[in-house]
Simulated assay, not measured.
Amino acid sequence: MTVLRCLGSTRPWRSLWYLGVGAVGALPMLALVKWVLKTNTPIGYLTGVVLIVMVNVLLSAPLAAMERRRLKVIDRRSGSRAPLGKNRLWRELGYAVAFTAVIAVLDFLVVIVALSVLIVPLSPLLEFVLDLGSIVNLDDGPVPSPIVVLVGIALMPVAAYLISMVARTQAAFARRLLTEPDTGLADRVAELTRSRTRLVDAFEAERKRIERDLHDGAQQRLVALTMTLGIAELDLAGLGGEGPRLVSKARAEAECVLAELRELIRGIHPQVLTDRGVEAAVAEIADRCPIPVEVHLDLPRASSAVEAVAYFAVSEALTNVVKHSHAERVDVTGVFAPGTAVVTVRDDGVGGANPANGTGLQGLADRVAVVGGRLTLSSPPGGPTELRVELPWACA
């Protein structure tokens, strides 16, 4: 959180309240220490040490419970965390010792300083209303009221930010020592991850089934129909009437349908991707692209789901380049490091690509996220545009 955002929020006031509650605990401990010092006897020192140890032991559990509730004032994330499980007694005792020895005293000092800073700009008004003498004095005498007000106002933002930082640090220490992540939430996250993986696997299995049915069923029948019409066209050659012309037209229509079906199958999952991997599949779509595309991919084979995401990322990027970028050149690169592959598509077009303007890039980002990857886009006005996809890449 930046300084300006901190000062413009309720955090400084919540932090002051958080530290103020802790400062109350310093008063009994400071009184006990003062009593021990005033006795100035070995028995008094021993008695003071025993009392302090007993206080820490007796108050460790209730103090930890109070601190967990107090954390919600400054750290709202504590609502998603649970009390300690193992080693609970020792960790609560350790926090009690830290609180009584350091934290409470630090809270007391910070609250005193904060209240002093708040009183400084109000001192001229307090002096007038309560008929007091000068509240702010130096060795040379009272400080003029305008200077007091200006100095106080200048110190307030600094004090507010420092109070917030102290409270935030103290809350982080208490959260680390007294709480642990909510296991129920962790279990739900793990189950969501597993369910997402199952959905991806089910989608991949259904995709393969549709591709197989189209390839081995409808496509083969269209090929047979085209061949039959071709033979019929040859047999009817030279005959009069509309028969030869209609057969020729039917054969041409069948060839067009076959071409469209092959393009549909290629869009679902190209066979070359299954047989030869991402490099060959990307090289094929680069050859069909009307814009010159340089392909430099060095990726080993991986799972079919991840390879499909990499392929469709490049395919979607090239489609967007052709439609919107007015580019003259595209570079597709892919590098592999153990466990990760990075695929980059860069063009020299006009730039200005924005995922919010359409569903293509957003859908691609969602598809990348499903397999645990990350998509980043850099497209300043005037170009160049760079699409970068990082994917978990376990070699097959």
Results as ranks from 00 to 15, higher is better:
Ala313Thr: 05
Ala82Gln: 12
Gly8Asp: 05
Leu106Gly: 11
Ala159Trp: 03
Gly372His: 01
Glu242Met: 12
Val335Arg: 14
Tyr18Val: 02
Gly352Leu: 00
Thr197Arg: 15
Leu89Arg: 14
Ser116Val: 14
Arg367Thr: 07
Gln271Pro: 09
Pro28Phe: 01
Met227Phe: 13
Ala232Asp: 08
Ala172Cys: 02
Ile103Cys: 07
Cys6Ser: 13
Ser78Pro: 06
Arg329Cys: 08
Val223Arg: 12
Val117Trp: 03
Leu19Pro: 01
Ser304Trp: 09
Ala237Asn: 14
Arg198Trp: 08
Val120Leu: 12
Gln219Pro: 09
Met1Leu: 11
Glu284Gly: 08
Val102Ala: 13
Val321Ala: 05
Glu253Leu: 10
Glu191Trp: 13
Leu4Val: 12
Ile265Ala: 07
Pro157Leu: 00
Leu185Trp: 09
Asp216Ala: 14
Ala232Thr: 06
Leu361Cys: 02
Arg5Gln: 09
Asp107Cys: 15
Asp187Val: 09
Val36Ile: 09
Gly217Ala: 07
Ala365Gly: 13
Arg388Lys: 08
Val278Pro: 03
Glu204Phe: 06
Val350Arg: 10
Leu46Glu: 06
Arg88Leu: 04
Val309Ile: 12
Val389Pro: 00
Leu236Trp: 03
Val189Leu: 15
Ala31Lys: 03
Phe99Cys: 12
Ala26Asn: 03
Ala154Lys: 09
Glu191Ile: 06
Gly372Leu: 03
Ala154Gly: 05
Trp17His: 08
Ala61Val: 13
Gln271Met: 08
Ile265Asp: 04
Glu253Val: 14
Ala31His: 04
Arg276Lys: 12
Pro62Lys: 01
Leu132Ala: 14
Gly20His: 03
Met165Val: 15
Val200Asn: 09
His326Ile: 01
Leu273Pro: 01
Thr333Leu: 08
Asn87Trp: 15
Leu59Thr: 14
Val73Trp: 11
Ser116Arg: 02
Arg198Gly: 05
Leu130Phe: 13
Ala327Glu: 00
Gly240Leu: 12
Phe128Ala: 15
Leu7Thr: 04
Arg5Asn: 14
Ser123Ile: 07
Arg68Thr: 08
Ala104Gln: 10
Asn40Thr: 02
Gly372Thr: 04
Gly349Val: 00
Asp348Thr: 04
His296Asn: 15
Pro292Asp: 04
Gly352Val: 00
Arg374Gly: 06
Leu199Lys: 11
Ala232Ile: 07
His269Pro: 00
Glu233Pro: 02
Asp235Tyr: 07
Ile147Ala: 11
Val21Gly: 09
Pro381Gln: 13
Leu51Gly: 03
Gly277Met: 06
Tyr311Cys: 06
Val149Trp: 00
Val332Lys: 08
Arg88Asn: 04
Pro124Asp: 04
Glu316Pro: 01
Asp275Gly: 02
Gln170Ile: 15
Asp182Gly: 11
Val389His: 02
Tyr45Ala: 14
Gly94Ile: 09
Ala286Arg: 11
Lys323Asp: 06
Val21Cys: 14
Leu391Arg: 00
Ala160Tyr: 05
Glu255Gln: 14
Val55Cys: 02
Pro384Ile: 00
Ala26Cys: 01
Gly360Arg: 04
Ala104Pro: 05
Gly230Glu: 13
Val247Arg: 00
Lys34Tyr: 15
Leu177Gly: 07
Arg329Ser: 13
Ala327Leu: 02
Val73Glu: 01
Ala365His: 06
Glu253Ser: 15
Thr39His: 14
Lys72Asp: 05
